[in-house]
Design a protein around this nucleic acid. Structure first.
Length: 271
DNA sequence: AGCGGAACCTGTCGGC
DNA sequence: TGCCGACAGGTTCCGC
């Protein structure tokens, strides 16, 4: 479900609501969500305070007063909801953090792909080590990208989804980015020159920034911490627009499967 | 090493 | 109405 703009929106929401709040109790309803021993997890997070919240790629990092950090990934349907503890329960509550102010931070996840892990040190986390460039890193240039992609035979769309190259792009924004820079998602990485890669980087930054300004895209599951939807779905140009006219050339938008995922494009203006 | 495809889990939607 | 397959903002594992 959530890509970088949605994850960043969740991080912003969590910063406003839970920093400085103490966890007085933690209840794990679905233990498969917790990586490692869930009893140990509960023991270690209880009676600590949320100190800072950050994002790395699509991971949310919650650092506690103990110095340890919770590393969590929403995968397809995970969400954090901040509610009064008296509110009615949902069937899909998987982990509940009960706070001292009588609010709960609830990890809600229909499909249970989401993960929550407690780590001693963020710098040593094996998962985070595998994550590639943050999109706005100054060191990420067309030259850098070309070095990483020049020998790759995969379609550019698959490369954009690979979190070890650029972090944070998912299936919706990959289609939107390639439409914006007019590059066909099936094009092999090695066929792209520096100019193409420069355009891809510019579109990546432009689309992700714009989506963040609109609090992300809500198509079905994704919600903000206060349960509101994002609004960027109203600005999508190709994702989910099969057979609708291209906003640039009126040619009908096509849907194709690339690396097992639906991909939307205009075959006339994306070359 | 790099690539493609299956698997993880649960729900919804469209067609017959 | 009921059943069945396809599909869903993601990642990881396995075999070639």
């Amino acid at each position: 479900m959530p890509e970088l703009p949605e994850v960043q929106t969740v991080v912003d929401g969590l910063r406003k609501t839970i920093i400085g709040k103490e966890i007085i109790q933690c209840e794990v309803i679905r233990s498969s969500i917790i990586q490692g021993n869930d009893e140990q997890f509960v023991k270690e997070v209880q009676n600590t305070v949320f100190q800072s919240i950050d994002r790395r790629g699509k991971y949310i990092l919650l650092t506690l007063s103990s110095g340890k950090s919770i590393v969590t990934h929403l995968r397809m349907t995970g969400k954090f909801i901040y509610v009064k503890s008296a509110n009615e329960k949902s069937k899909y509550e998987r982990v509940i953090f009960r706070l001292k102010n009588s609010f709960n931070l609830v990890f809600h996840d229909v499909r249970c792909f989401g993960t929550i892990e407690l780590v001693d040190n963020l710098q040593k986390s094996e998962k985070l080590k595998k994550i590639g460039w943050e999109p706005w890193d100054k060191r990420l240039t067309a030259e850098t990208l070309q070095r990483e992609l020049k020998k790759r035979s995969i379609p550019i769309k698959s490369a954009l989804l690979d979190q070890s190259i650029i972090a944070g792009i998912g299936n919706i924004y990959a289609s939107e980015i390639l439409f914006d820079c007019q590059i066909n998602p099936k094009r092999r990485c090695k066929s792209l020159n520096k100019k193409h890669l420069k355009k891809i980087l510019e579109s990546t930054r432009k689309i992700l920034s714009l989506a963040m300004e609109h609090n992300g895209t809500s198509i079905s599951d994704y919600r903000r911490v206060d349960d509101k939807t994002g609004e960027f779905q109203n600005f999508l140009k190709v994702y989910g627009k099969k057979d609708k006219p291209c906003v640039r050339c009126r040619n009908p938008i096509k849907k194709e499967i690339i690396s097992q995922r639906s991909t939307f494009l205009c075959s006339k203006c994306q070359k």
